[in-house]
């Protein structure tokens, strides 16, 4: 079921609309907005073609950029995250996740799943804030914002991922 293109398209649309209409309106302490859409790419099947995934990541980010009118910072950040995904996967599972039927809390375990999400989102958010500012002297501000945003995104992922990524092990 999860490989069905119609289902995938529906899920993509739903998650992007959720990002735009709900999450992007949230501003903790005035500037921290949680992001959920990177999870779409992070939890793609491990055997998914990496080239396709990079291009998919680029356009997913670009759609978010168009909605938030932020140039291409999300595109860049998402491509960075997808590029590093195999590294993260090797860190959290023995064979880079290839022996797992899919990526979820139930197959990875809560500890490894959290580690994967936090690592990936940290790099995603850091790239995003860094590209947006492009100033090294603000590195402290960028790192602090990245840490806060990653934490908030992680909480949002924990709350919502059960809704969009059902725990069924195999179709």
């Amino acid at each position: 079921m999860s490989d069905n293109p119609v289902y995938l398209f529906f899920k993509y649309t739903l998650v992007l609309l959720f990002q735009f209409f709900v999450l992007s309106n949230v501003q903790f302490f005035g500037y921290i907005t949680p992001y959920y859409y990177p999870l779409l790419l992070l939890l793609m099947p491990v055997k998914f073609n990496q080239h396709t995934l990079l291009i998919l990541g680029f356009f997913t980010g670009l759609i978010v950029d168009m909605m938030e009118r932020s140039g291409a910072i999300h595109a860049s950040a998402t491509v960075m995250m997808v590029y590093l995904r195999p590294v993260f996967l090797r860190l959290v599972s023995t064979r880079g996740g290839e022996d797992l039927p899919n990526l979820s809390v139930s197959t990875l375990g809560f500890r490894n799943f959290s580690l994967l999400v936090i690592l990936a989102f940290f790099f995603h958010h850091f790239t995003m804030y860094f590209i947006d500012a492009l100033k090294l002297q603000q590195l402290d501000v960028i790192l602090w914002r990245t840490a806060q945003t990653t934490l908030l995104s992680f909480v949002v992922v924990l709350v919502f991922h059960g809704l969009t990524f059902p725990k069924k092990v195999n179709p």
Binding site: L54, D65, G71, A72, I73, A75, S76, V79
Partner: peptide, 8 residues
Amino acid sequence: LQILAFAI
């Protein structure tokens, strides 16, 4: 892709 993003 990164160069493209940067150009945009």
